[in-house]
Write a protein that binds this DNA or RNA. Structure first.
Lengths: 355, 355
DNA sequence: TTGTACGCGTTATCAC
DNA sequence: GTGATAACGCGTACAA
């Protein structure tokens, strides 16, 4: 077992260690301070030949400063956290991509936390924020109660909220223009000749984006002369119930001589609604109109294609990240709310109903 | 503009700093060393009353040791990187979830890198591996040429490959059993009465998983008495071309009195194939059989439902992470290859063709 | 212009 | 048993 001997001396476990600033200094025959200055662009206070030697030593040793050590020194890690409710939701991934771009451009590294819809893991994410000294955090999901994590826990680290707001938190908030999205959808349905709309949404449960869409929906209805509608909350695993509800609702509408359409509140709700419709043997655009918020890969494929209102996910992610980075860099201004418009993509599922 | 004044003094920007081990020591009236011992569970070498005081001080100050400082000390960060070719691919996300579970259970934090199918960003990820002193990395995509990053770059950090292997790298490799998956699919097609199969795959381009599936496909055909087939590589944005190819191929098959089916090589290929079929006005299971590797959200919704062979994504992610963690903890053994089986999910798209 | 010395938060080694 | 102290890699006053 001679290979299990542990030499207690300095470099036993890592065969090839990273080059340090000291190594560079030695190779270039200068002091660590000079190397540091070179790295920080203080070349104006450096003799050209020294800069030259340092430059070569760095290249030769393939040296990169250690962000960890830098973090220890002045509290910044150039790490940004992104906590999403559920990576499984394509919306989250799309926002991630946007945020990633902005972070990369600004020299930050994006760290993903998947909260998996579990409240407890949100606390973990907050702990990680301070433990790993992340410079800031983009938060997509959040317990609906604001009090749970006091700002004191953040140690002054900035936070930007995406998609879901929380009353009583003064943090920047980036979201799609929910009333606008609802209006796009309902204007379109109305123009196509539908007049009875069912909003299928995930359980509202205090989630701000769902509340906002529901309220915009109801407000639109209250002002419309022709549109009527109602709301159905579809929980996780009660597909049959949704299916039954859809059947009853449609029958009543048709018997009343109305033209029914379903509006799905987001991508998940769209999937549930499409599944229920599929299970009933219906075809979107045939027995009823269908429109969904959130564009998805599969929207063009089901039936004659699903009409959707796409969120500007990439822009949302970028805006959130840029917003956060400004805060990190010390911008002091009252909390902002950034609202971006959605875009309608018309397909066959909202073809004008036969009279 | 009085609020734009910058105080250059010490604690202006961060109002509330984290508690340090020194704070705890002072509050508990002991030395930092004792606190450290307490934290590392050396309570057997600690006077009970001291332990008590330290315990209280820690609770009172809400103290947590700084992973960064620990990293500086002994090179481990308890951070694991996961570099995926493309977060947009649901397969990546599913693997991520599995890996996350295992990491969480072992007290590691998973950091996601989205390579966005760009070769350059893979180098960035490798740099981050050493710069942020990640303890290891799970790699999904990799430039097809192995030499590009020499092991020297890793500074002895372990790497585990997922889904895509690279010749000449001795790293652990976790993958679905590709020949088994192909066999499941073709056995099923044959049993249903199909005898002319087109494998639609993303461009092979040296990607090991695609190569493996293609080879297994061809091998199966060469041994089968009834099945014939061919391969079509579908590139990113040439939907029309795929569509045209499908039409020609099917017509030839039918004219020869054969029963055609498409086998899509992964989720992305499934989407492309389904789109082309949709654009041709065909229905899966009607004009031709369709089966896809990778289960997707939308598989049940298109036509009579798409038959798929699901990869054990969660298990793949977990296995990869566990594997890596063993390496991190010093396990020395020759590089392993872990192969997990797939599962077939039969739906209407592979209904027996009418004679 | 350049080098020396110290501190960031931890842990490990040594004396006490 | 316990406490001072030296490192880890880096930035930066301060001294030269």
């Amino acid at each position: 077992m001679s290979d299990s001997v542990q030499r207690p001396a300095s470099p036993p476990p890592r065969p090839k260690a990273r080059a340090t600033i000291a190594d560079v200094a030695q190779a270039a025959q200068v002091s660590k301070a000079s190397v540091s200055r070179y790295l920080n662009g203080r070349t104006d206070i450096l003799a050209p030949d020294m800069a030259e030697r340092v430059q070569q030593a760095i290249a030769q040793l393939n040296y990169r400063p250690s962000p960890m050590a830098q973090a220890l020194k002045h509290g910044r890690t150039r790490l940004i956290g992104l906590a999403v409710a559920d990576v499984t939701n394509p919306f989250s991934v799309a926002v991630l991509q946007g945020a990633e771009k902005a972070c990369q451009a600004a020299g930050y590294l994006l760290v993903l936390f998947n909260l998996g819809n579990e409240a407890g893991r949100e606390r973990d994410a907050m702990h990680a924020l301070s433990a790993y000294q992340l410079d800031g955090m983009i938060l997509n999901r959040v317990e609906t109660s604001a009090q749970l994590w006091h700002d004191a826990q953040l140690h002054g680290k900035p936070i930007v909220l995406v998609d879901r707001f929380m009353e009583g938190m003064d943090a920047d908030f980036v979201t799609v223009d929910n009333p606008g999205v609802i209006q796009l959808a309902l204007d379109h349905l109305q123009a196509q000749g539908f007049d009875e709309v069912l909003l299928v949404t995930e359980p509202i449960a205090g989630v701000s984006s769902r509340t906002a869409r529901q309220q915009a929906f109801l407000r639109y209805l209250s002002r419309s002369k022709v549109l009527q509608g109602s709301v159905w909350e579809s929980a996780a695993h009660n597909g049959p119930q949704l299916q039954q509800q859809l059947a009853q609702w449609r029958q009543a509408a048709v018997q009343a001589g109305r033209r029914p359409a379903v509006l799905a509140g987001n991508g998940v709700a769209s999937l549930r609604a499409a599944s229920a419709i599929h299970a009933l043997g219906w075809v979107p655009g045939q027995e009823l109109g269908v429109i969904g918020i959130d564009e998805t890969d599969w929207a063009p494929l089901v039936g004659p294609g699903l009409t959707t209102v796409a969120q500007p996910t990439d822009a949302l992610g970028q805006a959130a990240a840029q917003c956060l980075i400004e805060r990190i860099q010390g911008k002091h201004s009252p909390a902002r709310k950034i609202e971006l418009p959605g875009t309608i993509i018309v397909r066959g599922s909202t073809a004008s109903p036969k009279r």
